[in-house]
Nucleic acid binder design. Structure first.
Lengths: 109, 109
DNA sequence: TAAATATGTCGGATTTTCCCGACGCGTTCC
DNA sequence: GGAACGCGTCGGGAAAATCCGACATATTTA
């Protein structure tokens, strides 16, 4: 058994968790909370080169966290929070046990 | 300017988000939900070499998600869900429907 | 005390991530 | 049409992550 990635995903894929692992990408998502923004507007607050921002956006698009709409010569990015439910669901399972424990200990909650 | 990480954290540090980015580590946390387990017991379900498991555990310990207690010649790992509140809080800001569960866990929020 | 067990750590190979400058393509403005 | 703008992608390099086999350390058992 020498292979590392048995098969399946085309090796370049990452999931929502991995997408959130990068601070710049989290910042992008935060910035998009209150409305769509262009790529350059997003890059403005990031201290990163434009290509870097573009690649972060590509990854976020790949996992479905953002979507882009062409508008004139710019591109409007808007948030799609649905993939975050996977993280929420995971956290929910992780914490369910503990929240239940807390409730057992203190029913006043 | 060739340096990438201007300074700060000792270069090997990662945050809770990064800790969750790895599927094996998420599996470990899931496995620890219902009670402490030894390192080898954790490795049993992971299809990884023992050193790999040990290093994942070291990282999880580094970000505070697990703690280890020596018991005889083995080491019992147990979950510490508190760092997950950071993820929960972040998700809470991003979404609207997540608060309560995290609050149960850490009323100090 | 010696062997066996449980786990951490080291050395090193491979892969992935992250970033940048340069270039290409479509759109708008003069 | 030609220059300027906005954005994606390519090529590539530095750093980090991931993994393993081998070795080190502590503890229990024979």
């Amino acid at each position: 058994m020498t292979q590392r990635r048995t098969d399946g995903e085309s090796a370049g894929t990452r999931d929502v968790f991995a997408a959130l692992a990068n601070p710049a990408r989290r910042q992008v998502l935060m910035a998009l909370r209150e409305g769509p923004l262009t790529a350059s507007a997003l890059g403005a607050g990031l201290a990163l080169s434009r290509p870097a921002v573009s690649e972060h956006l590509a990854l976020l698009r790949a996992v479905g966290l953002v979507q882009a709409k062409k508008r004139g010569r710019e591109r409007l990015y808007h948030l799609d929070p649905r993939p975050l439910t996977e993280v929420g669901a995971w956290l929910n399972v992780m914490l369910a046990y503990w929240t239940q424990r807390v409730r057992d200990l203190d029913p006043a909650l």
